[in-house]
Design a protein around this nucleic acid. Structure first.
Lengths: 130, 130
DNA sequence: GTTTATGCAAATTCTTTGCAATACT
DNA sequence: AGTATTGCAAAGAATTTGCATAAAC
C-alpha cells in the first residue's frame, strides 16, 4: 500500500521483531519502547506495517493483540494461513509453520480462516513432570 | 461451578439467546437490554454463565466479544471444538456444527483449538451476484 | 434472616483522534 | 520547501471494581 519511510521510529520498532516467529503483544511493545517512542506512534506504526504486509496481527482469548513478522505470508491475506500458538503456562505466543486448510462449509463462501491453539510450549513441557 | 439463581435478570438475559447457534456481541446485549438491566449486571451474568457452561464466548478480528449458547459443548472445554463464522458483509456471527480436529504440533501439547472463519453467509451470498 | 444479586458511579485498560511541532526526502 | 511522521493531551470504547441497596432462598 503506502510507502514506508525509513524513519528512526520504524527502525526502533522493527528491531523488536528480531525473531521472526515470536509474537509480541501491542501493549508489551508500548511498555518496552516507552522511553523511546510515544504509544500513539507505536500503535500507528503497527497498523501501518500491517497494512503493508510487514507484520500481521491476531487476538488471543484474553483480547490481547499480538503482532508478528510476516515471513511466509503474502500481503493480501497474511496471518490467515498459519495457526498461532499460545502457551497457557508462560503466555508466550508464536506462529506455527504449518498450513491449516480452510474448511468447506455448505451454503457459505469462506475466504479467511484463523486458528488459535493453546497448550504447553516445549519449554514449559520440559519444566513440568509430564 | 457455582449455583445460578433463577433471578429475573437471568431470565431476561437468557431470553436473548433464543436461537442456539446465533452469537450475540456483549456490547449488543448491553445496548439491547439497557432499559431492563444494568450493564454491569449483564457483563457479570455473562461471565458467570460462561463459567457454568451455559454459554461460551469468543472474539472476532475486531476484538468484539461474542456469546452463544452451548448446545453441543461440554462444560470443561466448550467453544473449543466447533468453529465460528463471521460474515464479512453483514457482520453476523454463528456457531458451525462441525468439529475441527486439534492439529498435532511437534514438541507441544495442544489442548485447546479455536477457529474463526470469515466470508459470506448464505443470506449475503444470495444478495450479491456471485 | 442470611446470602447472593443488582445498580450506580467511578476507575481501568487499551486504543484512537486532533492538532501543533518535527523530521524526512 | 513540502509532505509525511511524531508527540502530547484528551477523548473513546469496553469492561471491571467497590459499595450500598434489593432480591432470592
Amino acid at each position: 500500500m503506502g510507502i514506508i519511510r525509513k524513519t528512526q521510529s520504524i527502525t526502533i520498532l522493527l528491531n523488536e521483531f528480531a525473531d521472526d516467529t515470536v509474537a509480541i503483544a501491542a501493549t508489551e511493545l508500548a511498555k518496552r519502547l516507552k522511553t523511546q517512542l510515544n504509544k500513539t506512534t507505536i500503535y500507528r506504526l503497527l497498523s501501518k506495517l500491517e497494512d503493508d504486509g510487514i507484520v500481521h496481527s491476531f487476538l488471543d482469548r484474553n483480547g490481547t493483540k499480538w503482532y508478528a513478522k510476516c515471513t511466509g505470508c503474502t500481503t493480501a491475506k497474511h496471518a490467515d494461513i498459519h495457526p498461532h500458538f499460545q502457551c497457557t503456562d508462560c503466555g508466550k505466543v508464536d506462529c506455527l509453520s504449518i498450513e491449516i486448510p480452510i474448511p468447506n462449509i455448505p451454503n457459505r463462501k469462506v475466504t479467511i480462516s484463523q486458528m488459535l491453539l493453546q497448550g504447553k510450549c516445549e519449554h514449559c513441557l520440559a519444566q513440568s513432570s509430564d
